[in-house]
């Protein structure tokens, strides 16, 4: 995993995504460098998950380009994007419940079966909990273990890019922190990480770059620390109880 520093690993240019006439995500562009985390925050219904699904090919964008390491991958199927080094951790349904932990990880390595043993060791080293649970069926796992397994599965084929869709959803705060520690570790391996996150404070304090997505458009962007220091942003999206309500007002206006 030798990322050339400064080279854009993942580039999303002018993405427009939707199902019908009215797009959910409008003209979103972003770039994630190797070894860094870019997080996308924003209210419910802003189109964050839709954007993530479009990046990994599960929804066909209505317009825009997708590049990894400068290679245009627009319009490819999820299978081919996975082969091109894009890993994805969905928000829900992120493990195969009827398979064991080990089998889940093996499925992640479908593309490079000869490397399975080697990769299993690497993932088990990163997530020691998974090693002890290797023979358990995935549906018996706790929420925290499940998130670890989902990330581990996505890392099995040694991707260059990792897209995470709300990896902390539904987890207790201490597990949320632990998930983000792992996200940092993953970035440290040289991957370009794009993370959707509900918990804006957690996301911003762990990301090099961040975008605020509202109603399908990028409303703000900048280094995570900088956005975290912005009082207006904090009061809208992070601070007390008002954030959600004022956003709701903005949506219905």
């Amino acid at each position: 995993m030798d990322g050339t520093p400064g080279m854009h690993r993942l580039e999303v240019e002018d993405f427009t995504v939707g199902y019908g006439a009215a797009p959910i995500v409008k003209n979103v562009s972003l770039a994630v460098q190797a070894g860094t985390v870019t997080s996308i925050i924003g209210p419910n219904g802003a189109g964050k998950s839709t954007l993530a699904k479009a990046v990994v090919g599960l929804i066909k964008p209505m317009g825009g380009r997708l590049k990894v390491d400068g290679v245009d991958l627009s319009g490819r199927t999820p299978e081919r994007l996975a082969r091109s080094g894009i890993g994805y951790v969905p928000q829900v349904m992120n493990v195969f419940p009827s398979l064991t932990v080990r089998e889940n990880l093996e499925m992640g390595c479908f593309l490079r079966r000869s490397k399975t043993r080697h990769r299993l060791d690497a993932v088990f080293t990163m997530f020691p909990d998974l090693r002890s649970a290797a023979k358990r069926d995935a549906w018996t796992l706790s929420g925290g273990q499940r998130s670890m397994l989902a990330i581990g599965r996505a890392l099995m084929p040694e991707p260059n890019v990792l897209v995470l869709d709300e990896p902390t959803a539904g987890l207790a705060p201490r597990f949320q922190t632990s998930v983000w520690e792992h996200v940092r570790t993953v970035a440290g391996l040289g991957l370009a990480v794009l993370a959707i996150e509900q918990n804006a404070r957690l996301a911003l304090s762990n990301s090099e770059q961040a975008c605020v997505l509202v109603l399908g458009e990028v409303r703000r962007r900048g280094p995570g620390e900088e956005l975290l220091a912005d009082p207006e942003l904090v009061s809208l999206y992070i601070g007390g109880g008002d954030g959600g309500r004022s956003l709701h007002a903005e949506r219905t206006a």
């Binding site: 199902y19 949506r251 219905t252």
Partner: peptide, 24 residues
Amino acid sequence: LKWQSRPVRFVVGRVRTLLGEGAA
């Protein structure tokens, strides 16, 4: 699928309502 993606006019008898966008 459609009502997830765009606001639709929902006509039931005489009730006319505008449903907002669903979570995407």
